[in-house]
Simulated assay, not measured.
Amino acid sequence: MPRAAEPNVGGTYANGAWWRSLTRGALDLLLPGACALCRRAHNPDRQNGIVCGVCMAKLVPLTLPQCARCGHPRLSLAMPLAPLPIDAATNASTPEPALPPCRWCHRLDPALRAVRSVTRMDSGTGAEFVHALKYQGWERVAVPMGQRMARLSFPDDVVRERVALIPLPLGAGRLRERGYNQAELLARATAAEWNLPVWTETLRRVRDTQSQVRLTPSERASNVSQAFDVPNHRQSALRGQHVVLVDDVITTAATVNAAVQALLAGGARIVSCVTFGRAPDPGDRAAPDSDSTRN
Rank of each mutant, 00 (worst) to 15 (best):
R3D: 03
A4K: 08
V9R: 09
G10R: 10
G11P: 10
Y13T: 14
Y13E: 15
Y13A: 14
A14V: 14
W18F: 13
T23G: 01
T23K: 09
T23D: 10
L29T: 13
P32S: 10
C35A: 08
L37W: 07
R40I: 08
A41C: 10
H42D: 03
P44V: 05
Q47I: 09
G49L: 12
G49P: 01
V51T: 11
C55T: 06
A57Y: 02
K58F: 02
T63Q: 03
L64R: 12
C67E: 10
C70I: 02
G71T: 07
H72M: 11
P73S: 05
M79W: 04
P83W: 05
L84K: 13
L84G: 07
L84D: 14
D87H: 13
P95C: 11
E96C: 11
P97S: 03
R103S: 15
W104R: 12
V118M: 07
S123W: 08
T125I: 09
G126P: 13
E128W: 14
V130D: 04
A132F: 05
K134Q: 09
Q136H: 09
G137P: 00
E139C: 00
R140K: 15
V143N: 04
G146M: 02
Q147C: 12
R148M: 10
A150Y: 15
R151G: 11
D157M: 00
V158W: 11
A164G: 06
A164D: 06
I166A: 08
P167C: 13
L168K: 03
L170P: 03
A172F: 07
G173K: 12
G173E: 15
G173M: 01
R178V: 13
N181H: 10
L185Q: 09
A187C: 08
A189E: 04
W194H: 14
L196F: 05
W199V: 00
W199F: 02
T200N: 12
E201W: 11
R204M: 14
V206Q: 02
R207Y: 07
T209E: 00
V213S: 11
L215Y: 14
T216S: 14
T216A: 11
P217H: 05
E219C: 07
E219Y: 13
R220Y: 03
A221K: 14
S222D: 13
N223K: 03
V224C: 04
Q226Y: 04
F228Y: 05
D229W: 08
R234H: 11
S236K: 10
L238C: 06
L238E: 06
R239T: 13
Q241P: 00
Q241V: 04
V243S: 02
V249E: 05
I250G: 03
N257Q: 11
A258S: 14
Q261H: 12
Q261I: 02
A262F: 05
L263I: 12
A268D: 04
R269Y: 08
R269I: 01
V271D: 05
V274H: 04
G277M: 03
R278D: 02
A279G: 13
D281K: 08
D284A: 04
A287F: 00
P288T: 12
D289R: 06
S290A: 15
D291P: 00
T293H: 13
N295L: 15
N295A: 12
